[in-house]
């Protein structure tokens, strides 16, 4: 069947919409008790600036004595405050002095002394993008309004990272692309990818991978590999994987591919909570996708894109299910009726 010209876009708004660009992205960085926050609310942060020191293996230790009301010549300490230590890392007693204590986060008073969360090995969490600190809560995390725009994904894993954007086509393209020349890059992979290829990419100095889809098992394998690295106490280079669609195999959406194509060679960042690719908007700006542009997300035509023609009312689909449907003209000219819920559009 070929595309007919009769269109009716009244029902187009019933198609689930997905935001292509978030102009004011907000990122969260999870912290745990014992992690030291290096910024404060309202601070402006630049790329690469240290946001916090994360303890690899936090432990509980004795902290400073709990001061009596008469002894306090500065604001009283309270849980969550950072205790800078008093110069004796081992915390052992010295003659004629109170026992000294290492640096750490105050947890709670016990037997006249604060208990603190401290540790020996720290990883510095760096800002993957510039922004303004909205919230800095000890033991919980940071919230930062990032400068620039963002493209949202569905899941991400790893440590927030930054690098220049480069494209690799499919798993073969990715394997061919894996050499030290790609060190410092964030690779966009349009096609199938697995955990082995991602781990190899990380080993060659690649800073991140953006994929249309990734099986859950591969994501878990990657997380397990990362946990093993962390346990080895070697410094971890920032590396993150961001998945744009989900676990089912799909090609990159046309508008997303256009956007990432325009960003090729430029610096972008990946943050994991929420999963975002953050960048300065390209100049000249990418024209937004056509209002009637739709993408098939499920069913036999998964991954195909086209143009909205009209709503098709209730239709019976396989397994005898009645669903709202729509008629669309695919890019190759074919006209198809698909379940309305299997479509998405970018706004």
């Amino acid at each position: 069947m070929t595309a007919d010209v009769e269109t009716d876009d009244r029902d187009l708004e019933l198609v689930p919409a997905r935001r292509l660009l978030d102009p004011e992205p907000i990122a969260r960085f999870e912290l745990a008790p014992g992690d030291r926050i290096l910024v404060a609310e309202g601070d402006r942060v630049s790329v690469g600036m240290g946001l916090a020191e994360r303890q690899r293996e936090p432990r509980v230790d004795d902290g400073p004595p709990v001061a009596g009301a008469a002894e306090v010549d500065h604001p009283a300490l309270r849980a969550g405050d950072w205790w800078p230590g008093d110069g004796h890392e081992a915390g052992g007693p010295l003659r004629r002095r109170h026992p000294r204590s290492p640096a750490g986060e105050l947890l709670h008073p016990e037997d006249g002394r604060w208990r603190i969360a401290t540790g020996s090995h720290v990883d510095v969490l760096e800002a993957p993008a510039a922004g303004t600190v909205l919230e800095a809560i000890p033991g919980r995390g940071l919230t930062i309004r990032l400068a620039g725009s963002a493209l949202a994904g569905t899941s991400a894993a790893g440590i927030p990272t930054r690098g220049r954007l480069e494209r690799a086509i499919g798993e073969t393209g990715l394997r061919g692309a894996l050499d030290v020349g790609r060190a410092g890059a964030i690779l966009v992979v349009d096609g199938r990818i697995d955990s082995e290829a991602i781990i190899r990419a990380r080993a060659t100095g690649v800073r991140g991978v953006i994929a249309a889809s990734l099986a859950g098992k591969d994501l878990r394998d990657l997380q397990a590999s990362e946990a093993r690295q962390r346990a080895s106490l070697q410094p971890l280079a920032p590396f993150a994987v961001l998945v744009l669609d989900g676990t089912a195999r799909r090609p990159l959406a046309g508008p997303v591919a256009d956007l990432l194509g325009a960003l090729e060679g430029r610096e972008v960042a990946i943050v994991v909570d929420p999963p975002l690719v953050v960048f300065n908007p390209p100049n000249p700006a990418i024209p937004p996708p056509g209002r009637d542009r739709v993408r098939v997300m499920g069913g036999d035509l998964v991954g195909r894109e086209g143009r909205w023609l009209r709503g098709a009312g209730l239709r019976r689909f396989p397994a005898g299910v009645l669903l709202e449907a729509a008629t669309i003209a695919l890019d190759d000219g074919e006209v198809a009726t698909v379940a309305l819920a299997d479509l998405e559009r970018f706004v």
Binding site: P16, T154, A215, G216, K217, G246, T247, A248, M297, G298, G299, F317, P318, A319, V321, L323, A339, A341, D342
Partner: peptide, 25 residues
């Protein structure tokens, strides 16, 4: 089990996606 977990994760992300055929079952 792996594939089922992925299907359920996708179902959580898009509860109405592929509500027909195998998706309905």
């Amino acid at each position: 089990r792996h594939r089922m977990r992925d299907r359920l994760r996708d179902l959580r992300l898009s509860p109405w996606l592929e509500a027909h055929g195998d998706g309905a079952r």
